[in-house]
């Protein structure tokens, strides 16, 4: 009986000791991280397009921090979802089609001879990328445009187009080399094609 008692006492004392140690360590060596909302906001593409159902990226970041789904951002696409999943340590899910689909990056373009100068698009632009004044022709500053689409809807004469950004030699990316045939299990379909190309 006394052995058992000794064991229990010893274990209890040890538990208390280690608990105290851990507690101390967690206070003493606390790592001050960015608030999670800032980190999420940094990942979001900042188009401020509202396709997620929130009025801008930051509100959506706040919503995610409060547990909203991470797959409501079409401009960010799958890569943003993966980055968020990585940050929040949750599973990466496909984009929610309800909020739109991932489109190639584009900028707004105003067909200037059709513009009546109503300023409605200027008011809609979340990043002040449209230049113009009442009764003056408007134009988009392409380098500032985030491609959010928000100016297209309010235009009374439908003179705004979303033009996909073209690849120039300066923005061209080297493609990933073809995958060598050695991955595990995940590439069943590719094995056949690979064997054909080799033999």
């Amino acid at each position: 009986m006394s052995t058992i008692l000794t064991a229990i006492i010893v274990l209890f004392v040890l538990a208390v000791l280690f608990g105290a140690l851990l507690g101390f360590a967690s206070v003493r060596f606390r790592v001050e991280g960015n608030p999670i909302v800032d980190q999420i906001d940094a990942i979001l593409p900042q188009t401020q397009c509202g396709q997620c159902g929130y009025p801008g990226c930051r509100p959506y970041a706040e919503a995610i921090a409060n547990g909203d789904a991470i797959n409501k951002c079409p401009p960010g696409g799958q890569s943003t979802i993966e980055a968020l999943a990585d940050l929040l340590d949750v599973e990466a899910v496909p984009l929610d089609a309800e909020h739109g689909e991932e489109k190639p990056k584009s900028v707004a373009f105003i067909r200037e001879d059709e513009c009546i100068g109503c300023t409605k698009c200027i008011q809609a632009c979340p990043v002040d990328a449209i230049l113009g004044a009442a009764k003056q022709m408007h134009t988009v500053i392409a380098s500032e445009c985030t491609g959010c689409d928000l100016c297209v809807e309010p235009c009374p004469v439908d003179c705004i187009d979303m033009i996909p950004i073209e690849t120039t030699p300066n923005t061209w990316k080297w493609p990933e080399p073809p995958s060598p045939m050695q991955l595990i299990a995940t590439d069943r379909g590719r094995g056949v094609a690979a064997s054909e190309s080799v033999s």
Partner: peptide, 8 residues
């Protein structure tokens, strides 16, 4: 089994 080209 892994459906890889044998010879290679």
């Amino acid at each position: 089994l892994r459906k890889r080209p044998l010879g290679f």
